[in-house]
Computed example of a mutant assay.
Amino acid sequence: MIRDIFSRKRHYTTIPSEKGKKDVPAGLMTKCPECKTIMYTKELNQNMFVCDHCGHHHRIGSTLRLKYTLDENSFTEFNQGMISQDPLTFPGYKEKSEKDRQSTGMNEAIRTGYGTIGGYKAVIAVMDAGFRMGSMGSVVGEKISRAIDCAIEEEVPFILFSASGGARMQEGVVSLMQMAKTSTSLNRLHEKGLLFISVMTHPTTGGVSASFASLGDVNLAEPQALIGFAGRRIIEQTIREQLPDDFQSAEFLLEHGQLDQVVHRHELKKTLLTLLKLHNAPQAKKKEGEDDA
């Protein structure tokens, strides 16, 4: 019996060769940064890039965001050709921007256009962290302002998805001016009695969080999204206190009254549709009254 144990054939795990590694298609598998589970990217995509094991919401680009949010084939993009200049002649800025244009297929860090959700028309703006980390330069601010103007002209709600590291440092004070510019445009939207829904995703920080992202009539966020102005380390060094572990998370902001709701990605389209229906009811009634008069 003992002889049988030692004579039993052993199976050893082999280390894949370099050729074997190259045979594995790029992007086939994705590792969850939260629970470290490795999943097929295709299955993750089918689950809207939400980890099926821990519920972590993976960062997604503007293309998938529009696909998951809007009615099929309803998006019409505008102001697509706008490209940022280099006002400060910042070293390497043009080259890095061109590299991002090649990798993302976008000219800037935001896409704007018309779309429908459940048949309800709205103007949509979606920031994309894949382009200069979604930073807000002059073109981003201009495209948001133009989108708001379109919403005012068409008398439809404005929905904006934020995903940004803040103002774009390569454009200096020009990027900071976009905070006031976009906020002023939103004030015009508010004066017209039109709805602005702000959806904050991971991350929404810096000048973006301190301006238009926080000015929604309804402020929503995805679970565990990082939302805040300055970084944790800077704040702790300034106030000389240790911050809570969940500081600047969507859940922390909700608890402290800075958000209206934290919404799971699977429920986001349904939530937006409900808000559009609630907004449309009195608008439709008002229009009927004007027609009767």
Score class of each variant (00 low, 15 high):
G92D: 02
V126P: 01
C150Y: 12
R168D: 12
S135D: 00
N107W: 03
I110S: 05
G115F: 07
P87H: 04
E77F: 04
G92N: 02
K121H: 08
A180E: 10
F75D: 08
Q85L: 12
K94R: 15
E77H: 04
I83H: 02
Q85M: 12
L189Q: 05
R188C: 09
S175Q: 10
E191S: 15
T89G: 10
S185L: 04
S84A: 09
G130P: 00
E191L: 12
L70F: 07
G130A: 00
R168Y: 06
G166V: 07
G119K: 04
S185Y: 04
Y120E: 09
V126D: 00
Y114C: 14
L176T: 13
P87W: 05
K143Y: 02
E77R: 07
E108G: 14
M136G: 05
E171T: 04
R146N: 11
E72F: 14
E171W: 01
Y114I: 06
F131R: 00
H190K: 15
N187F: 14
R132I: 00
A147P: 13
G141P: 03
M136D: 08
M169P: 13
K67T: 08
G92L: 02
K96Q: 13
E153D: 15
R111V: 09
Q178H: 07
A109E: 05
I124H: 02
F158M: 09
Y120Q: 03
E72A: 11
V156M: 14
T116Y: 06
K67M: 10
T76R: 15
V139W: 05
G134P: 00
N79C: 14
R101Q: 02
I83V: 09
L66Q: 06
A109N: 06
K67W: 12
V173H: 15
G81D: 12
L189W: 07
D71Q: 06
I144M: 04
I83A: 05
L189S: 03
V140Y: 02
K181N: 15
C150D: 13
G105S: 05
A125R: 02
S183M: 09
D71A: 10
F158H: 10
G137F: 00
N79K: 11
I117P: 11
I159L: 09
L66G: 04
G166C: 09
V156W: 13
T76G: 13
I144Q: 01
Q80N: 09
M177V: 09
M169S: 12
S175A: 15
S138P: 12
S145K: 13
Q170Y: 13
G172M: 03
L194D: 00
M106F: 00
V139N: 07
F131Q: 01
I117Y: 08
E95I: 04
K99G: 01
V123R: 05
A151T: 13
A109G: 13
I117A: 14
E142D: 15
K143Q: 04
S164Y: 00
I148V: 15
K67G: 06
G113P: 12
G115M: 07
S185E: 08
D100H: 04
L66M: 13
I152T: 09
L64V: 03
E95L: 06
D86Q: 03
Q102E: 14
A129H: 06
E72M: 10
M127A: 02
Q85S: 10
R168W: 09
L189V: 03
I144T: 04
M127Y: 01
K96C: 13
T104W: 00
V156P: 12
M82Q: 12
